[in-house]
Structure formats: C-alpha cells, structure tokens
C-alpha cells in the first residue's frame, strides 16, 4: 500500500472531508443509474490506484457477494413493476424490480468502496484536527484517549501474564476465568489512575492551563487544497441543482423511464469529474513521477 500522505491523501483534511461528504451524499441519494455507475467506477478506480490489483482481487469476493445478495433479493421480495419475467410461487418477478435491485447493489457497493478509501485517507489525526477546529479541547481529549487505549491493553496483558505465571488463571470453570479477569481489570484501573497522576504532573509542568492556549496542526492549507475545494463545490452545485430540479430524475416503477434533456448531460459530466477527480490526481502524480524518472 502507498504512503497515506501521498497522492489524494496529501490534501488538507478540510478539503478531503468536503469532497467525501459530497460524493457520499450524491451517491446515496441520487438513485440514478448513470450517477451510480459513475460513482462505482470512480470508487473502484481510486481503490485500484491506492491499494493495487492484488488487494482488489483479495477482497473482490466480499463485494461480489454483497452485490449479488442485494441485487437478487429485491426482485424476490418486491413485486412492483409491469413487466413480469417469470412467476415464482405464484408471484411475479418483474424486470423493473430486477433493475431496481441492480441499482441499489451498485450504489451500496460503490459507497463501500468509497468508505474503504475514506478510512485510509482520513486518518484519526485528520479527524481529530477537523473536530479540534470546532471544539479545541475535544481534540486534546480525543488525542489523549487514543494514547491511553493501547497502553491500557498492553498493561492488561502484562498483568495477566504475571498473574497467570503464579497460577491465577488456573481455575477450570469459566466463572473462575471471569473472576480472575475481573481482578486483573480492577488492578489495572487503579494502576491507570496512579499513572494519571504522572501524566497530570507532566501536563502541568509544560504549562497546561495557562490562558490563551493555541492549537497547532501539521496540516498546511495550500493552493492545491483551495483548488480541490473549488472544483468540489462547482461540481456539487451543478449536481445538486440537477437533483433538485429533477433533470436527472429516473423512474423504476411502474416501468423504467427517464426524462433527460441537455441539462442532464451537464450534470452527468459534472459528477463524472467529481467522481474521477481523486483517480485523476493519483494517476497524474504517478505519471509525472514516471516521467521524471525516465528523464534521469
């Protein structure tokens, strides 16, 4: 896998967050097959660029099963639509329900792929940073909690190991095991409180509680970020207007039908740009890199 701070991940958390919010909203609420397919293609391309072909095939099974489950369950349970394909238990299985299932399946799998990228690109630090802008104290608390959790786990294992060596966990029944774990946990909590005194001292020693605390982050907002936000906003405005005015409305029931005009194609183009933007950025970075290498 690539370095998380390269390519699309190198953008400022705010720009990334805004972009992901718009892609999630449009993907989930448009219910238009063109939008959904564009979103799906964009998501798959970005995950291919970020995680590689190998990772794609390793996890493809999961997404395929999800896809089939959703796509097939809709026509089995929903009998709306006017074009019956065949009858199952005296119930019609319709073409429209089948299409609707396909649409939903593509939409959900696309969102899952986006989410996978989101998880990797928006690290906990970036998240904390964004929330910290709103509530500065919260970001410190989150950061401290993220520090304590692994330390807590490690210390639990350490105490449990020491106790196991002197026979604490040797009881046969599960009640004994639970009792032993509870004892270790109790000791762990008092140890944590004891250690917190040191942490507190270290915070005080470095001036925590002085008036006028500032808020530092390692993220820089650059022209690139501004460009991404502008592109994101421009595309989103076009797409949202299209959605609100009904120019990309698509009907599955009672029969598959759409009312597209010239405006619809502008909306699709805008969304295509939005959806493929991260992929284009990733590719551009790789290509320029290869270009520089070839020049050396």
């Amino acid at each position: 896998m690539q370095n998380i701070t390269s390519g699309f991940g190198a953008f400022h958390p705010l720009a990334l967050m805004l972009w992901f919010v718009s892609i999630f909203i449009v993907s989930m609420f448009s219910m238009n097959p063109v939008i959904t397919l564009l979103s799906f293609a964009g998501a798959v391309c970005l995950s291919l660029a970020r995680f590689g072909l190998r990772d794609f095939f390793r996890h493809a099974g999961f997404y395929l099963i999800m896809f089939l489950l959703i796509a097939l369950s809709n026509p089995l349970f929903s009998h709306n639509g006017e074009t019956p394909l065949f009858y199952l238990n005296h119930q019609p299985v319709t073409l429209e329900a089948f299409f609707y299932g396909l649409e939903t399946a593509f939409m959900i799998v696309a969102v899952l792929y986006w989410f996978k990228c989101f998880n990797v690109l928006m690290t906990s630090e970036k998240f904390i940073y964004l929330f910290g802008r709103v509530i500065p104290r919260l970001s410190l608390i989150l950061s401290m909690a993220l520090r304590l959790l692994p330390a807590f786990l490690r210390r639990y294992r350490q105490i449990a190991r020491a106790q196991k060596a002197i026979g604490l966990f040797s009881g046969k029944g599960w009640t004994d095991q639970i009792k032993a774990s509870a004892m270790v946990f109790g000791a762990l909590v008092s140890r944590a409180l004891e250690n917190a005194i040191d942490t507190g001292a270290s915070m005080l020693a470095r001036g925590y509680g002085l008036p006028g605390r500032s808020h530092f982050s390692i993220y820089r907002f650059t022209r690139r970020d501004l460009f991404l936000i502008c592109a994101d906003l421009a595309c989103s405005v076009v797409v949202f207007t299209g959605m609100a005015t009904g120019s990309i409305r698509f009907f599955f029931y009672p029969s598959v039908r759409c009312s597209w005009n010239a405006a619809s194609y502008i909306v699709f183009a805008a969304f295509a740009l939005l959806s493929f933007l991260p992929f284009i950025i990733e590719c551009k970075e790789k290509l320029t890199w290869n270009y520089y290498i070839s020049k050396i």
């Binding site: 401290m144 520090r147 942490t199």
Partner: peptide, 9 residues
Amino acid sequence: NPDHQIVTD
C-alpha cells in the same frame, strides 16, 4: 517513567 508523562498519541 517515560511512559506516563507522554500526553498525546
């Protein structure tokens, strides 16, 4: 103690 005085993650 090196561990206890670290505040953030």
